[in-house]
Design a protein around this nucleic acid. Structure first.
Lengths: 141, 141
DNA sequence: GCATTTTTTTAGAATCATTCTAAACTACCG
DNA sequence: CGGTAGTTTAGAATGATTCTAAAAAAATGC
């Protein structure tokens, strides 16, 4: 599936090396949180992460969840995204350029591969483009 | 300029009728705030609005600024937008479909007319499209 | 290994944007 | 006018996030 290219599933062991490679110490807490965020969650918010963590482990503080997502973000493993419809920050595992589809019925957010969307922009003189991101709102059958 | 089609400049008198037409009482505070938001500001945040209001008038409360932008929003005169780079809500005067250009150097946000950007999306089966919005990040010379 | 240094985790306090509340005020309608 | 409904207000409450300072854990050096 094309899902695979968007969310490469790393095993728990790989998480540890992934963190190390990114210059982050693979502490217990970080491994737990990062495994969830990078391998299992879909655009989670901090709230989502904390809820999941609390259900499966004890004694991981909210501050650590924040610390960890910030560490992942600075390391480039994750991307903070925001949308008009919510005041929450979501974290996107997919740090390569891609687009989003928002199901307006369910609120579900789905990654769209960049080669599925073609954008042609005629911008005014002097505007240079670094990045284009598209949000499509709609519904899934 | 194409600016005109995006930000129709209403005179203060028209503001009053505009508010009435939208079913909002044209109170003194609302006229002041709405005139700024609809006629003079560019994608203001509540903070921006409050700062401006405080500089030009006295005794308008923060709560009223919030109340007013919410009223404008429910009336469809304004649109709340959020971007990855900021945790603030911005209000967009232009409620018709359009796109945005974000100058990554200055943080300035510029409206882009929809006919300047062509989008071709090949979505998976069963996804219907209600609206497409494009954000271009780049720099202006 | 053990002592030292550095980084991480933590609980709780602080902050910031936003919403709520309840009382005072204003606008509109007869 | 006088009453009713809508609006404004200050300040309290909320919710997300950041900060703080101390305890814990990990890495480093010998």
């Amino acid at each position: 599936m094309s899902q695979e290219s968007l969310h490469p599933q790393l095993s728990s062991i790989e998480i540890e090396t992934e963190l190390k490679k990114a210059g982050l110490r693979p502490t217990v807490q970080r491994c737990i949180i990062s495994d969830y965020v990078l391998n299992h969650a879909e655009h989670p918010s901090v709230e989502t992460i904390k809820t999941w963590v609390d259900k499966h482990y004890t004694g991981i503080s909210l501050a650590t969840v924040y610390n960890t997502v910030h560490a992942l973000e600075s390391a480039g493993l994750v991307h903070a995204i925001r949308f008009d419809h919510s005041d929450k920050v979501f974290y996107d595992t997919n740090t390569t350029l891609h687009h989003h589809f928002l199901d307006e019925k369910t609120g579900e957010l789905i990654d769209i591969d960049p080669d599925k969307i073609e954008v042609n922009a005629k911008l005014p003189e002097g505007m240079s483009i670094n990045e284009i991101s598209v949000l499509i709102r709609g519904e899934r059958a």
